[in-house]
Structure formats: C-alpha cells, structure tokens
C-alpha cells in the first residue's frame, strides 16, 4: 500500500518535472495562457468594481466581501486546474479520435496516467497567486481576524473545493465515453461554476438549490467564505459529505465509461 503510494508520488514528481520542462519549451504559449488568465480575472474584478460604483452592497455583501469571495473561488479552481487539465482533452477528443487507449495499456492507474500528461498546468499557478492576493487584500481591508480553527480549516476548505471541481470535470469529461465528445457539456459546467464567484444570495432560489445540491459549486467558495467571514457553519457541515459524494459519483461514471471504450471513435 505504502509502496504503491510512494511509487505514484515519485512518478508524480518526475512527470511534474516533465511538465515544467515542457513549459520552458513552449514559453510563448505559457505567457499567453497566463496573460489571458490575468486579463480574465482582471475583467471579473472590474465588473465587480463597476457594480459597486452604483450601490454600496449587493445581496447584503459589501465590495470587499465580494472581492474576498471572488478571490477565494480562484483557490480551489486553481488547485484543480494545476493537476486535472488533461480532462479537457478527454472531453474534447481522446474518445472521439480513439486515442484514449494509451492510458489502458500502461501499468499505472488510467486516471493517473491521463492526468499526469499535464501536471502543473501554469494557468493554475496564476489562479492560485491572484486568488491569494485578492483574499489577503480584501481580508485586510475588511479587518478580518480568523480564529485558530478557521486558519486550520482554510486549507482543507480549498482542498475540498478543488476535489469538487475535479469531480464535476471528471463527470462531464467521462460522458464523452457515451457521447464521443463532451466538450460542450464541460463548457456548460464551467460556465455554471462561474456562479460560485458571486454571493449565492443574489440568485433565484432554484439556482441556489442547483448550485448547492446538484452541481455543488456553492461548496467551493460561498459556503467556505460565509464561514470564514462570519463564522456561520450552517452548510459547512455538509462539505465533507458533498465532496465525497461528488468524487465517488464521478469515479463511478469514469469506471463505467472506461469499460465502454471501444477505440473506434467517429
């Protein structure tokens, strides 16, 4: 058991090194990706700024609280991004072109084999850095003073959020085993995840329910932020359950998908 874990750890480090090496070879691409990402977050922040030019509070949230939420939402997203971006390729073309087979003929777990082709995606690093800057800046503007418990839980909250992002992505990417390509539905899911960057309170109740219990992106930012900002643990207790449920569901779909794969593509 530990030997397997150690083997995968060593492999991860090695393949991560390969990933970083690749970055150096495609420097322009990296700069473009990181730059595009910064522009995106910049525009998101600008939109929040423009909204708060008109009113002092939205749905009971102040400007800095919304920025805190926006920043925090980037952390689990970035962590997920760092390791699982190859899932986009699965949804896009690996089944369509029959290329997925190569993960089935290697003596490592197929999911690991797939993900490891793009470990340490640089866009993820950008998200983590920008997110952390936003969170700390907004937090200090708010005069936030977290308790020891909040400090201790914060990394776990980010980790669970990342796992939820990964699970949703894996779920929709795995649909490609049935639909040949599932890129559109992955886009749709990502688009829905954008809701998580703003306070849930402003949405229609049906949308709130969707984001909490169906595509549980609320647990990646809103729920943790409510806890970190106010200490309210109302929904927080559900976080482990939701995370486990999402991950297990996604893995089940992935496994069924693998067994369906026939390499013929389209």
């Amino acid at each position: 058991m530990t030997r397997t874990a150690l083997r995968y750890l060593r492999l991860s480090l090695f393949l991560g090194g390969v990933g970083l090496h690749r970055l150096a070879a495609y420097r322009l691409d990296f700069v473009l990706g990181a730059g595009a990402f910064l522009v995106r977050v910049g525009i998101q922040t600008a939109v929040v700024g423009l909204v708060f030019r008109q009113v002092p509070a939205v749905g009971g949230w102040s400007y800095h609280e919304v920025l805190f939420l926006l920043g925090f939402s980037l952390l689990p997203r970035g962590l997920d991004h760092l390791f699982t971006d190859q899932l986009w390729e699965l949804g896009r073309k690996l089944v369509q072109r029959g290329e997925f087979y190569r993960y089935l003929i290697r003596p490592v777990n197929p999911l690991f084999s797939l993900l490891s082709e793009r470990f340490f995606h640089p866009d993820g690093l950008g998200e983590l850095i920008v997110g952390a800057v936003l969170v700390f800046w907004a937090g200090s503007e708010l005069g936030l003073d977290p308790t020891a418990a909040q400090w201790a839980l914060a990394p776990l909250l980010v980790l669970c959020g990342a796992l939820i992002h990964t699970a949703v992505k894996l779920f929709f990417a795995s649909l490609s085993f049935w639909t040949v390509t599932s890129l559109p539905s992955m886009y749709a899911a990502t688009q829905v995840s954008e809701f998580a960057a703003y306070p849930l309170d402003i949405y229609h109740s049906s949308l709130r329910a969707l984001l909490t219990w169906v595509l549980p992106f609320a647990f990646t930012s809103y729920v943790p932020c409510v806890y970190l900002l106010t200490g309210d643990t109302g929904l927080l207790v559900w976080l482990p359950v939701v995370t486990a449920g999402a991950v297990l569901t996604a893995l089940a779909v992935w496994r069924r998908g693998i067994n369906r794969f026939d390499m013929t593509g389209s």
């Binding site: 939109v47 909204v51 749709a188 688009q191 829905v192 402003i202």
Partner: peptide, 21 residues
C-alpha cells in the same frame, strides 16, 4: 441543449448580479 444551458447560466450570472443592483 448544452449551448442553451451555457447561455442561460451565463445570462443568469449577469442578470441576477445587476438585478440585485
């Protein structure tokens, strides 16, 4: 269908944000 969901979700974010304003 998926494009529709994407569009509806995208619209909902901005619509609800600005309706709050």
């Amino acid at each position: 269908f998926v494009t529709g969901v994407t569009a509806a979700a995208g619209a909902a974010v901005t619509v609800f944000l600005w309706r709050a304003v």
